[in-house]
Design a protein around this nucleic acid. Sequence first.
DNA 1: GCGCAGGCGGCAATCGTGTGTATCGATGGG
DNA 2: CCCATCGATACACACGATTGCCGCCTGCGC
Lengths: 343, 343
Amino acid sequence: MTESPVTLRDVAARAGVHPATASRALNPETRLLVREDTARRVLDAAEFLGYHPNPVARSLRTRRSHTIGVLIPDLTNPLFPPIVRGLEDRLAAAGYVALIGNTDGDGERERLIFNQMRARHVDGVVLATAHLSDPLLAEAVRAGLPVVLMNRMAQDHSLPSVSVDNERGMRMAVAHLAAEGHRRIAHISGPQEVSTGLNRYRGFVSAMEAHGLAADPDLIISAKAFSIEEGLRCTRILLEHRGGCTAVAAGNDMLAVGCFAALEEAGLNCPADLSVVGFNDMPFIDRLRPPLTTIRFPHYQLGTEAAQLLLEQIGGQGGPVKVLYLAPELIVRGSTAPCRERA
Amino acid sequence: MTESPVTLRDVAARAGVHPATASRALNPETRLLVREDTARRVLDAAEFLGYHPNPVARSLRTRRSHTIGVLIPDLTNPLFPPIVRGLEDRLAAAGYVALIGNTDGDGERERLIFNQMRARHVDGVVLATAHLSDPLLAEAVRAGLPVVLMNRMAQDHSLPSVSVDNERGMRMAVAHLAAEGHRRIAHISGPQEVSTGLNRYRGFVSAMEAHGLAADPDLIISAKAFSIEEGLRCTRILLEHRGGCTAVAAGNDMLAVGCFAALEEAGLNCPADLSVVGFNDMPFIDRLRPPLTTIRFPHYQLGTEAAQLLLEQIGGQGGPVKVLYLAPELIVRGSTAPCRERA
DNA sequence: GCGCAGGCGGCAATCGTGTGTATCGATGGG
DNA sequence: CCCATCGATACACACGATTGCCGCCTGCGC
């Protein structure tokens, strides 16, 4: 009464069959091995008793836990909740659940959590933390563990991944600033060890060249993390011995928020003194002062697509490795304005 | 090589003992049943082989999954990520993992997810979604499933819970507005079916009385959910046939954000035309325009304390039911100003 | 009427661990 | 010298579901 002690043998007993037969009848895959009326009797008995298969026992036998490990840097980064929800919703629809692990950008912690997840026999892993060359990837591949990279790509291995087209997104951001008349545009780049940081940097450089603008090395500062603190630090440096830039393309929204903080600290106004464009269009970023101009991509869908790719991989079709790009979109808000120096 | 096929029998074989002995030697609880040098031999063998007990098999035998179900309304509500992190961190320290379920405030979905979690044999449940009288609670109690309420309380059952002192917090908010000279203060209350909504409402009424102010029923509007949309809707109503209030105490920050949206829509200015105070001090709320005056409580700690209570309950000390209140704190920012009508 | 084929379903082993019980050996006391 | 006792370990089964294998029964054809 306290638990749900209704087990397969109970169902079998009530249906007057052997547990093995009940098992076959209940599994849609093997149901055709059982006569139809027998199957119906078993199903009715299961229904009547309120039978739910014990997933632990099933996992022990089938060696599949229906559990997915998800490694992200930090759940409290507003970018991730919608992505995680997309993941969980899609996984849940397939009968899987997600175990979330926060690495805080620490490689040591990442390895620890990864091992714990492997110990729990996860059926696959979604990595949103992978560095360009991450030893974990080699390990996962060697172990035959299905892996999908999310918002990240790897250089050493060809792995399925879902991400926004970062180069294109950054080019759109720069194009917007250029169209507003800005010529001296700075870039606060994300960490160059992750694909997101690197590709956006590349997009910045190529876009500047495409617009016939010099990508002044003095106006490119590399942040050590995608954090508000780093945005603040980098912008301070920029403001101190900047070559007089009129606009900043930040590596992501968090860096842009840090940029805002630095401007406020220096008594400068955005966009009057400096135009700022971010990347991600994370929740609530449209309600800041000023509302941030940024590059949007569908967060929730990023999660669902990552889940989809992982499920396909677990399904074992063994098809070609899929690399999925989601289209970025420029969202113009109040943090960018025409360049005054040109006017 | 691909998996970690090193099992208890392997360890036992290498140590030259029976698997049962190896099991006892490895378990600190039962280690004293084994001679010390034998235990050491087993431990060495386990170390050498890189043995990790199979948690699935263990769970099947011990009927403990080391898994906790966590039901929240919506992970994309910025209030929850820090709370969830606190929970996960504390649980992880005790060897537990959390399964997150989003109910979207839907009772049907809540029941569905709850059942799925029970089917997965979670060792306990943290409920951040419970209504004042929730059939799930009775069910969980009847099943002997450890439960902790988070940011919620129940009326029917005496259950362990962790929450902020909502009445006191709301009284602090009202006291602040009163101190600024406001006399006609409105309240956008949260859903009255959940303790958070009800207790803040009570706090509002009692605070108004304490300051000798009339709690005009026209100035109290009940939202159907703690959402931006509801905040928008309720504020519109308030602005249309309000009795000329000069301040609003919102049931939480999301409602306050909706309130901001309604003001912008009506061409009104906060705090010049209307002072607004929220509740929760959720992340990024300090970066809105204007920065929201609100009631803060430690989110992360709310999570860790809930986890702690649940772990104690699972530990089975069977002590008295603990109900924990965290102290609220008034954070004054730019969304509240002295009442102009008094000046 | 008998033999064979094939569809159904039962038997039992298995997954890896934990634990109650039995057994074995040693030791100490009478 | 034998028996009782106790400590240490081996044995076996249970947890609950899955699945390879085998046997039974039925139906059909000759």
